[in-house]
Simulated assay, not measured.
Amino acid sequence: MKISRIYSNFESEFKAIDFCSGFNIVLGRIFHPDNLQKDAHNLGKSKLAELIDFCLLKGRSPEFFLFKFPLIFAKYVFFIEILLDSGTYVTVKRGVSRNTKISIKKHDVGRQLYRGDGWSWDYEDEAIGVAKTILDSYFNLAAVGPWGYRDAVAYCLRSQEDYTEVFKLDKFRGQHILWKPYLGHILGFESNTLIRNYQLKNEIDALSVKLIELKKIIGTTQGGARGNT
């Protein structure tokens, strides 16, 4: 699967972005004469990656920029067109104000613009969980089964904080069971064994905490019993 195009319902404010079939670079440049001496940070490069993540059905967060400034972005509807391994395309439509209602359309020709009314969608206003299942069937990432495409997207769209460690994403801080079995599976290891390993470790940790609590209770009881004799 490859991103083919991303666009919005307001072409004058967010122009359609077409991706080439090879290597793509998002380059931030300053053209305004008054700002030429400023650095090229904070020009929206990372925001484009976040927008792609939104179009690929990332869950809602109040800190996400589209939801953090609702008065600015509530009117927007975004579309992402994906080239599938079969050579066909699938377009996902997701609005900011109705972000849990997803429409999906499969088509043979790329570089389409399905903004506006009057289009026939294969799946229209589906719940986000259902839409993820539909996209999983289209993307057919059998190599990462039983994990869904969202697990792969998390590694493809990294923030700066996600490069602190090569394999461990920032959002998986401290939760080995959420990411190590997945990576192990990708590297050819038996994922079920890894999952069971971390499940057992979690059970041992929970029992260790319970044992400490029981020792405290028993110690208190024994002390009280000695004091009454």
Rank of each mutant, 00 (worst) to 15 (best):
S208V: 13
A154I: 09
G184N: 09
K168I: 08
S159L: 02
G223N: 14
W179Q: 01
W147E: 09
I217R: 11
A154V: 12
N202E: 08
P146H: 03
G219E: 08
C156L: 14
V144D: 01
K210E: 15
D205V: 09
L207H: 11
T220M: 14
A206Q: 14
L214I: 15
D205R: 06
E190Y: 06
W147V: 05
A206D: 13
K210N: 15
R196T: 14
E203W: 06
F172S: 01
A152R: 04
V144F: 02
I195S: 05
I204E: 13
L169R: 01
H176I: 06
S208K: 15
L178Y: 00
L157F: 10
Q222K: 13
F189Y: 13
G188K: 12
G145I: 07
S159E: 07
L200M: 13
L157P: 04
Q222E: 08
Y163H: 12
L211Q: 15
G184Y: 07
E213M: 09
R226I: 15
A142W: 11
F139H: 02
G224T: 14
S159C: 02
R158Y: 01
A142P: 04
L169V: 00
G145P: 01
Y155F: 14
N197G: 01
T220G: 14
K168F: 03
C156Q: 07
G184K: 05
S159V: 01
I218Y: 02
S159Q: 02
D170G: 00
R196D: 14
A143N: 03
E213Y: 04
Q199D: 12
L183H: 01
R173S: 10
